[in-house]
Amino acid sequence: MLRILRQIAKTGMRTEAPPAPADEMAKAARLQADVLRTLGRALAIRQVDAGSCNGCELEIHALGNPYYNIEGMGIRFVASPRHADMLLVTGPVSKHMAIALRRTYDATPEPKLVVAVGDCGCTGGIFGESYATLGRVSSVIPVDAEVPGCPPTPTALLQGILAAITARVAVAGDGESATPPPT
């Protein structure tokens, strides 16, 4: 137990430390503030791999590490689409996953946001469209924001998540959807 405590004390708070590359962390800190200001509450995300190579998943995982500390921003990944405000979908959407993706979307309560992740999620990427894939996520379900990259960096992912939220808040501000999302 002592060793554990010693390791924790030695490690310190990495979330606020400015490790290299420094501008990347500065961006992350700004984003963190933006997410909290815009959202003002917890955001529950359900991640769906609809056919990816697993590269995007590695970077989505990285969002949880102490450097990005996504949970500290009030964003968490949930186990069911029924608990989610947002779907974070990687592609290309394989035909074998198309039905499961659509069902996951249908199971997510309104209002819901969808962020398409990675070059494959945005355009089909290197795999394109074929007998086996439908390509971009938006060919299967409506998409609110896209995050290109192969794979996108954790910072780019945070920006994409924020872009989707601010777009929705802006729409709500126009009076089109005055009801705040359930908390």
Partner: peptide
Amino acid sequence: CYTHKGIEKRFESMALADGCRL
């Protein structure tokens, strides 16, 4: 096989030099 995305077929539409990216 849920993520079957036709990788082997895709290779056949690529040049040898580009296959490495796939």
